Simulated scan of single mutants.
Amino acid sequence: MRTLLVILGFLVAAPVFAGGQVDLATIQRTAASWLDQQLSQYQGQSSYVFGKLDSRLRLDACNAMDVKAAPGYRLAGNSMLRVTCVDGAMWAINLPVKISVQATYYVAAKPLAAGHELVDGDLAPQQGDLGQLPGSVILDPSSALGRTLSAAVAAGAAVRAEMLRAPIIIQQGQKVRVLIRVGDIEVSNDGYAMNNASEGQNVRVRVGTSTIVQGIARPDGSVQVTE
């Protein structure tokens, strides 16, 4: 059940402008509708409280508004929404909002060492307010399993995205298959990797005695080169 907390004093004080102007309460209702939709992705309870807008604002009438998180903000904790008129006038304002989102995030189920590859049983679900947590906490365990920890994590500590790196699928000196695409034609050859690489990373490959090519590591351990 979603709890919508709105500052009643703001609703009472927000003036309604006649003569081709938009009232501030309409802006707030539009933002609330958008925010409800965005927060519906979370299974836990969420609530928010809008901050006050300056009642002296005079904004021309608007037929349609676009709402999004203001640059540099996330939809948790003390945040800011950017409301822009996209039909009927040219204005944009920032609407402050404090958001509480109770959601499931994942912590280390036991002490985990740096360099450990995460497997089933390493992570445990935890409930908490995302506004009180780093924005990079893991919400989907499938995005972490199979990845390697760059730092040790204590039991019960949140696992964060910046702690994880994709597994190395190509080792320096490894023999690899090189796929070279020129237009609609693809040819393949064997070579030797000159650096380690995870999926999607750049890897340099020596083909023959002196030819060096650079491509992208593919999930199967081959290297894709596009000419």
Rank of each mutant, 00 (worst) to 15 (best):
T3W: 15
L5C: 14
V6M: 15
F10M: 09
L11I: 01
A14H: 02
A14K: 02
A14N: 05
P15V: 00
V16E: 10
F17M: 11
F17H: 11
Q21V: 08
V22D: 00
V22L: 02
D23T: 00
D23Q: 01
A25C: 05
I27Q: 01
Q28L: 09
T30L: 00
A32F: 05
L39M: 01
Q41N: 02
Y42K: 01
S47D: 11
K52F: 06
L53K: 02
R56F: 02
L57W: 06
L57F: 07
L57G: 02
L57N: 05
A61G: 12
N63A: 04
M65H: 01
K68P: 07
A69D: 10
P71M: 05
R74M: 13
G77H: 13
N78Q: 14
M80A: 07
M80T: 08
C85D: 03
A89R: 10
M90Y: 15
N94D: 11
P96E: 05
I99D: 02
S100V: 09
S100A: 08
Y106W: 12
V107P: 03
K110T: 11
P111M: 03
A114S: 14
G115Q: 08
E117R: 10
D120F: 13
D120V: 13
L123K: 02
Q127D: 03
G128V: 11
G128H: 05
G128P: 07
G131T: 04
Q132T: 07
Q132R: 10
L133R: 12
L133P: 07
P134Y: 14
V137T: 13
P141V: 14
S142Q: 10
A144R: 12
L145V: 04
L145F: 15
R147V: 01
T148Q: 11
S150N: 13
A152D: 08
V153P: 12
A155W: 05
A155F: 04
G156S: 07
A157K: 09
A158W: 01
V159K: 13
V159N: 08
A161L: 11
E162A: 06
R165P: 01
R165T: 07
R165W: 10
R165V: 05
A166D: 15
A166Y: 15
P167A: 00
I168G: 03
G173Y: 13
Q174K: 02
K175S: 09
V178R: 01
V178D: 04
V178A: 03
L179K: 15
R181W: 13
E186R: 12
G191A: 12
Y192P: 03
A193P: 10
A197T: 15
A197H: 12
E199D: 07
V203L: 10
R204M: 09
R204I: 06
R204T: 05
V205K: 00
R206L: 15
V207P: 04
G208L: 10
S210T: 15
V213F: 13
G215R: 07
G215K: 08
G221K: 09
Q224S: 11
E227C: 10
